[in-house]
């Protein structure tokens, strides 16, 4: 590997799509997404985000317009909170990106609702909140700058199932408003339920790119990269052993139930 963090990663992520990135720990997922908003710069090659180009020569200055476009929710984002009220913390990003005080305030009021907390939370200290609520505040703080692309690095790690679904639905809703979503995850059900495209990373390389349906049908690729199937697909494979037949591999619960219904009624 000669110490390269990433090698041979060439791909296009389309605007407005929900792209998931999977791969085992240390495969280079986080390293790759940090290049998209120039937290890291390539040693060779280029990254193009809209009309911004990032090359090895890119200057560390004047990156703000790019970083405004590309919002990033890190793993355990609650560790980035620092202001004395939730409102100020959410306003921090927008103000750095040139929003006026009033605009930032309006963004905070809007975003606290979007993440499912009431306006009564705005005046609280973020350090008085529960872990899950802090996570939501941190996400609101990133969304408040109105980025065109949102990068999510395991945003639901450590959340309860209900909270997890709410957060994922929230990102899906952002996509429907026209945002591009890039999600790093280890949860294949999230991939099946939410993603349009799936990228597979292994040993700092991009080894697979396609729709979740295509990737989950590529058994060799999955096995080589230690990627499991979504629960529905595992269930379907067990049913197939018992004589069920599926027109295509069901990867979500609704696809699975639809196919089963047909076959039960068919008998």
């Amino acid at each position: 590997m000669s110490g390269l963090g990433l090698a041979d990663v060439s791909c296009t992520i389309e605007s407005g799509q929900f792209t998931a990135i999977v791969g085992k720990t240390g495969s280079g997922k986080s390293t790759m997404v940090k290049h998209i908003n120039a937290l890291l710069k390539p040693t060779s090659g280029t990254i193009t985000v809209g009309d911004h180009q990032i090359t090895p020569e890119t200057d560390n200055k004047n990156l703000k317009p790019l970083r405004k476009k590309v919002g990033m929710v890190f793993q355990f984002p609650e560790s980035q909170l620092f202001e004395d009220t939730v409102e100020k913390d959410i306003m921090f990003g927008p103000k750095n990106f040139g929003f006026t005080e009033a605009e930032a305030k309006a963004a905070a009021e809007k975003m606290i609702e979007v993440v499912g907390l009431g306006p009564e939370y705005l005046k609280k200290s973020p350090f008085d909140l529960s872990g899950g609520q802090m996570r939501r505040v941190a996400i609101a703080g990133v969304l408040a700058s109105d980025p065109e692309t949102i990068i999510l690095d395991e945003p639901t790690a450590g959340l309860d199932p209900v909270g997890r679904k709410e957060i994922m639905d929230l990102f899906k809703a952002q996509q429907q408003k026209g945002k591009t979503i890039i999600l790093i995850t280890h949860n294949m059900d999230d991939v099946a339920n939410y993603a349009d495209k799936l990228m597979v990373m292994h040993d700092s390389r991009l080894v697979g790119l396609g729709t979740p349906q295509e990737i989950f049908n590529d058994h060799e690729l999955l096995e080589k990269n230690y990627i499991s199937l979504p629960q529905s697909a595992i269930f379907a494979e067990k049913l197939a052993d018992k004589g069920f037949t599926f027109s295509k591999l069901p990867i979500t619960i609704s696809e699975l139930t639809a196919e089963i219904k047909e076959q039960i009624h068919g008998d």
Partner: peptide, 19 residues
């Protein structure tokens, strides 16, 4: 490690260190 992580997170929120 923690410092690097937090610096990255705040950079992504538009903080420019050394400006």
């Amino acid at each position: 490690d923690e410092t690097t992580k937090i610096m990255d997170a705040q950079r992504a929120r538009g903080v420019d260190f050394g400006e």
